[in-house]
Amino acid sequence: MLSVTDLTMRFGGLKAVDSLSFEARAGDITAVIGPNGAGKTTVFNCITGFYRPTSGTIVLTHPAGGGTFALERMPGHRIAAAAKVARTFQNIRLFAGMTVLENLLVAQHNTLMAATGFGVLAVLGLGRYRAAEAAGIEKARFWLDAIGLTARADDPAGALPYGAQRRLEIARAMCIDPVLLCLDEPAAGLNPRESEELNQLLLRIRSLGCSLLLIEHDMGVVMRISDHIVVLDHGQKISDGSPAEVRADPAVIAAYLGEGDEDEEPA
């Protein structure tokens, strides 16, 4: 459903991503892995419209004939609103001063906004906004249950513990009804128990029909839940296949053994 072809991204003289091509199939959990500085986050930012790639194409096809989108040409907010690609961030970006529930409602902005009749009717208390809001809260409640935060719905997001913030960010992304959910190092900073909960959540999201694309640094997490793995090093693809295939690939082993502690992002 997502096909990246010859994607290249330059920052000044530096090639962060060098003619990368890969496919992510519908209904799969696809993982992009690689050592620090391999260009994973850059790929992600290109897919979700935060960077404009230097060259190459990123085409998203909705399953069941829902249309085709050339992501590399769309503005960031359209990628989420029209192409239905949601994402999370490596350093969590919640609306810290808003409640958990509000975070989930902001994610449904476009749907709810359409129901307000461009604001005018809803200000006057007319129109079908009330029903739309009730539906929005229902959807929020569904995800709150899924991430186990129903009891904290009215607390500010910034006051949640780290692991809960990660889960909330995923739930918030799911509230845009994505066909593809992109997760940037979702397991970073989680303890083993939280990490296991996260895996269950991701598998549940896949079972709901949403495809996933995740960047991960930690091989353990990836191997357990991914259907398909793309390995990057120095901006190029060095391996591509099922977890078992990738694990056996000598190129991957070499790349990981040679890993240093450089920064993630070349930007």
């Binding site: 935060f50 960031g76 949601a86 609306f95 001063g97 808003m98 902001v106 902005h109 476009n110």
Partner: peptide, 11 residues
């Protein structure tokens, strides 16, 4: 609160 997050949510 966060402009970047808003953009990622289609706003």
């Amino acid at each position: 609160e966060d402009e970047v997050a808003c953009r990622s949510l289609g706003i």
